[in-house]
Amino acid sequence: LTVEVTLDGRRIELHGLSEEAHEILRHALERNADDKEIKKILEELRK
């Protein structure tokens, strides 16, 4: 799955996400998580 997010003013596409990762990010974006929170989530998903 692919998600497009804006971090530090740049639009980035995240490819190859699992369903779980996609859901976690989608929920964070829906509640307008800040860049710091999104980065933390991405860091966790990379593990």
Rank of each mutant, 00 (worst) to 15 (best):
E43L: 09
I38R: 01
A28V: 05
H27V: 14
L1N: 08
L45A: 05
A33I: 06
I41F: 04
K36M: 14
E19T: 11
V3S: 05
I41N: 00
V5A: 02
T2W: 09
G9Q: 04
D8M: 00
L17K: 00
I41C: 01
A21C: 09
H27L: 13
H15M: 07
D35A: 11
I24K: 14
K39T: 10
R11G: 05
R46D: 12
E23V: 05
I38Y: 02
H15V: 12
L1A: 08
K39A: 11
N32R: 10
G9N: 04
H22F: 15
D8N: 07
D35K: 05
V3D: 03
H27F: 01
K36F: 14
T6F: 06
L42S: 01
R11S: 08
I41G: 00
K47M: 14
E44S: 12
D34A: 09
I12A: 03
I24F: 04
L17C: 09
K40G: 10
D8K: 02
D34Q: 08
E44K: 11
K47V: 15
S18L: 04
D34K: 07
L1D: 05
K40I: 10
R10T: 14
E44G: 11
I24G: 05
K40H: 11
E20I: 10
K36E: 14
A28E: 03
V3N: 03
L29Q: 06
E23I: 07
V5K: 01
D35I: 09
R46H: 13
L29A: 06
R26M: 14
G16I: 05
L1K: 11
N32E: 09
I24R: 15
T6A: 06
G9K: 03
L45C: 09
E20R: 10
A33S: 06
R46S: 13
G16R: 04
E23N: 12
D35G: 09
E30W: 01
R10M: 15
L1C: 05
I38L: 13
L17N: 01
L45H: 04
H27W: 01
R11I: 15
E37S: 07
N32W: 09
E23G: 10
R31M: 13
L29F: 07
R46W: 15
I24Y: 05
D8P: 04
T6N: 11
R11Q: 11
E44A: 13
D8F: 00
D34P: 13
E23T: 08
I12T: 06
A21Y: 09
K40L: 13
E43K: 09
T2L: 05
E20H: 12
L29N: 04
I41Y: 02
L7E: 03
N32F: 13
S18C: 05
T2A: 07
K40D: 11
E23H: 12
E30F: 02
G9Y: 00
R26H: 08
H22E: 14
L7Y: 00
